[in-house]
């Protein structure tokens, strides 16, 4: 550890460059979102310019973007809620009441992640068309529940397993039934990691693209689809508006950065102790 050599210096420079590469593209996009078109379409990249809010005003004022935002919030929110309400108890049962199928159940839940999204989206498109539910929020919520439920279960099993067994035993001795142990003891103790798991499920469906692209055409379009349509505009590209819509799309997931990083930390803490 104690060799302040050139090797260390080079290492630090590489790390600084990597950190720069992680942050700069996002920073640059945000900067461009506040530029007028003339300041973006320049032969030399501009760092100093007169900022404008026109791009954001335009994006937020557009019906399609607003509708996409509402759809995204409702669909992701509802799917995450259902996923959490059904997934957390299921994860607890897997963690605390192992039976001979527990391993298989966990593998089944994980294996849902192997399914190529196209392989889910194509048949679902036909199913929702047949049921007359194509391009509705309902069909999107049901479809996304598959993703949120599996993710919540997958990430919450270890979180519940980390709750000290002794605490639950003590509660049982005090006369708590199995259900009260879950609601009053396990759920609050594991809550930090569980919030991380639920946040991860939210980010996953908020960012989801392929399924939404195939299952919606107008009414239930989510924000990523709307944003991607903006990025495919023709020759005379309104770059500022594009950057602004990308910034808008990225804000909700980035709000969870702290929560997710906390979940990562707690997931590895146990192993070291």
């Amino acid at each position: 550890m104690s060799r302040p050599t050139t090797g260390r210096l080079v290492g630090r420079i590489i790390l600084a460059l990597a950190a720069f590469s992680a942050v700069f593209p996002v920073f640059w996009t945000t900067l461009n979102a506040f530029k007028n078109r003339v300041d973006i379409v320049t032969p030399t990249p501009l760092f100093i310019f007169t900022p404008t809010l026109d791009n954001f005003a335009y994006v937020l004022g557009r019906d399609s973007v607003f509708a996409g935002l509402v759809n995204s919030l409702l669909i992701s929110g509802a799917a995450v809620l259902i996923g959490a309400v059904l997934g957390l108890p299921a994860a607890y049962a897997i963690a605390r009441y192992p039976n001979r199928w527990s391993k298989d159940i966990q593998f089944f839940v994980l294996s849902l992640r192997f399914l190529p999204p196209v392989a889910v989206a194509i048949p679902l498109m036909v199913i929702w068309l047949d049921l007359g539910l194509y391009d509705t929020r309902t069909s999107m919520i049901v479809t996304y529940t598959l993703l949120t439920l599996a993710t919540v279960i997958w990430l919450s099993v270890p979180a519940f397993a980390r709750v000290p067994k002794e605490v639950e035993e003590a509660a049982r001795v005090d006369g708590y039934g199995p259900f009260s142990v879950f609601f009053l003891i396990a759920l609050p103790i594991a809550s930090r990691s569980l919030i991380g798991a639920v946040a991860f499920a939210f980010v996953l469906v908020w960012n989801e693209f392929l399924i939404a692209l195939m299952l919606t055409t107008s009414d239930a379009k989510t924000l990523p689809i709307v944003a991607s349509e903006l990025t495919q505009l023709g020759r005379d590209v309104p770059w500022g508006i594009l950057n602004a819509s990308v910034v808008l799309l990225s804000i909700p997931p980035l709000l969870f950065l702290g929560v997710l990083s906390g979940m990562l930390n707690s997931a590895f803490k146990r192993k070291s102790s």
Binding site: V26, T29, F209, T231, V246, L249, S250, P253
Partner: peptide, 12 residues
């Protein structure tokens, strides 16, 4: 910082 890129929507 290194966690940020992966949380971004892939479209972004």
């Amino acid at each position: 910082l290194f966690l940020m890129p992966v949380i971004l929507p892939r479209v972004s």
